[in-house]
C-alpha cells in the first residue's frame, strides 16, 4: 500500500504543535552545533528538518509557521539559482530583512535555518556549523 506523501505545510503544522518535535533525530552533531549557535549573541532560534523529522527552537512561537515557510522557500531558491547560474554545490543562503536575518543551509542532509538579529555574526555561525 502506498503512503500518501506529506506536503510541506503538513510537516510545518506537525512541527508547530509542540515547539520542539523529535522523531528520528537529525545528526546529533548538527543539533549540538545549533544548540551552541543559539547561545550566540543575537540568535533568535533555528529550524532543522531532515527527511524524517523536524525540530524548531524559536523564542517567538507565533513566528514558527511563517519562518518555516520562508526557510523552505529560501532553500528551494538556493537550489534553483545555483543550478541556473551553474554555481556548483549550494553552501548557504542568507536573507536579510529589515529586522531579522535568516541563514539557511543544508548540512549533512538536514535543511537548517537560523534566525538572528541583523547584528549577529553569520561568519561565526557558518564556521561552527562547518558550512564556510
Amino acid at each position: 500500500m502506498s503512503k500518501k506523501k506529506k506536503g510541506f505545510h503538513d510537516q510545518v503544522v506537525e512541527a508547530a504543535q509542540p515547539i520542539a518535535v523529535e522523531g528520528t533525530t537529525p545528526a546529533n552533531s548538527v543539533r549540538e552545533g545549533l544548540d551552541e549557535v543559539k547561545t550566540y549573541e543575537g540568535v533568535i532560534g533555528y529550524i532543522i528538518r531532515s527527511t524524517a523529522s523536524a525540530a524548531i527552537d524559536l523564542k517567538d512561537p507565533t513566528k514558527i509557521v511563517d519562518y518555516a515557510i520562508l526557510s523552505s522557500l529560501a532553500l528551494d531558491a538556493c537550489r534553483e539559482l545555483t543550478e541556473l547560474f551553474d554555481l556548483g554545490d549550494a553552501k548557504s543562503i542568507a536573507v536579510e530583512g529589515k529586522d531579522v536575518k535568516m541563514l539557511s543551509a543544508v548540512v549533512d542532509g538536514n535543511r537548517i535555518s537560523i534566525f538572528m538579529d541583523k547584528t549577529a555574526d553569520t561568519g561565526r555561525i557558518l564556521r561552527r556549523l562547518h558550512v564556510a
Binding site: 520562508l70 551553474d86 554555481l87 556548483g88 542568507a94 536579510e96 530583512g97
Partner: peptide, 29 residues
Amino acid sequence: RALNALDGIFDKADSINGVEGITLEGNKG
C-alpha cells in the same frame, strides 16, 4: 527564471519585514 526562484522569498518576507538583501553562496560562485 531567477526572479521566479526568488519570488517565494519576496512573497513571504513579511515575517522579516521585507527583503533588504540576499546572499547565496555556492562552490563556484
